[in-house]
């Protein structure tokens, strides 16, 4: 187990290095001329050249990349071109909001997804099952931008139950968490349904029934726990999925997380921020996957780590 973790961490570092190289190269190729953005529209060619040199943008690609990596190892993500603030400071300020939103979204998708999946499995092939599966299909396919605006309009503007965007209280959290959570709800309900159906067909369930146990007791003691276990392992992968969702959802709800930061930076081609957010998200995805792989054998001893 220990050796496995060490090897996987080593692999993760290589993956992150690869991601940093590809992102850096892509941003290098974008014809955005950060020095011109900084210098402003009234600057002379001299000023532009001066800033270019100060930022080291006149150096060849490999030198620029090596410098970036060197700073990165010291925990320095550079300064934003437009905000002129340390990127690490900007990300750190926004990280709590994103983590809170992710956590809340996981709670939402687990509660909704598992409940819907379980009901569908128990009512298999009924009208209830079919409508729940249609619902889950809709939540998977609906664009989060549309879902977000819709929820905002109905529950915040029309009904006034929640604040219209923003951050701070539990009430602010509900709508964005549901918007992100709904996507996972669709996946989880489908997985839960098939997992439940598998478990329901197991011998030990038949035995339990034969023993004369009550229906609810069978479901809650024997079926649900066993059906949920393989799904828990998926949460790690979810974290990666969320990373793409938060960019849109945070912008719609004015949620001050790193997704919103990324979206602003992309629009303004603020390269140090784009780099920083990409690397941090990549860390999340890599760690999430690692977590998923580590949890899997714990919940299902049939899986062995090699």
């Amino acid at each position: 187990m220990g050796a496995y973790v060490v090897r996987r961490l080593g692999e993760s570092l290589l993956i992150l290095l690869g991601i940093s190289l590809v992102t850096f190269a892509l941003l290098y190729l974008v014809p955005a001329d950060p020095e011109r953005q900084i210098a402003g529209r009234s600057a002379t060619a001299e000023t532009v050249a001066n800033i270019r040199a100060q930022l080291g943008l006149d150096q060849p690609f490999h030198i620029q990349y090596a410098r970036y990596l060197g700073n990165l190892l010291q925990g320095d993500l550079g300064r934003s071109y437009l905000q002129r603030t340390e990127v690490s400071e900007l990300i750190a300020a926004r990280m709590p909001a994103t983590l809170l939103l992710m956590l809340a979204a996981i709670v939402v998708e687990l509660i909704l997804g598992l409940t819907i999946g379980a009901i569908a499995a128990l009512k298999r092939n009924s009208a209830v099952d079919q409508s729940l599966m249609v619902f889950s299909f809709v939540t998977i396919s609906a664009p989060q931008f549309v879902v977000g605006i819709l929820l905002l309009y109905v529950f915040a503007v029309q009904l006034g139950w929640f604040p219209i965007g923003g951050y701070g209280t539990l009430a602010h959290l509900v709508l964005p968490a549901i918007t992100i959570g709904l996507l996972g709800t669709g996946w989880y309900s489908r997985m839960m349904r098939s997992s439940m159906i598998d478990v329901l067909a197991q011998d030990y369930v038949r035995t339990a029934r034969a023993k004369g146990l009550g229906k609810l007791r069978i479901i809650f003691r024997h079926v649900a726990p066993n059906a949920i276990l393989p799904i828990i392992a998926m949460i790690g992968i979810d974290i990666g999925l969320f990373m793409s969702g938060i960019v849109v959802v945070e912008s719609v709800f004015g949620w001050p997380g790193i997704g919103q930061l990324a979206w602003q930076a992309i629009q303004r081609v603020d390269i140090p921020i784009i780099m920083g957010v990409t690397l941090v998200s990549a860390c999340f995805i890599v760690l999430g996957n690692l977590l998923a792989d580590l949890i899997a054998p714990l919940v299902d001893p049939r899986i062995k780590l090699k």
Binding site: L152, A156, V157, G160, P163, I164, G165, G166, Y167, E250, S251, V252, F253, G254, W255, P256, Q260
Partner: peptide, 18 residues
């Protein structure tokens, strides 16, 4: 100054007195 509000959301807030 509240930051991070899309113009459409900002307008809704104004209409609600927020």
């Amino acid at each position: 100054f509240e930051i991070g509000l899309e113009p459409i959301v900002a307008l809704l807030r104004l209409q609600q007195g927020q």
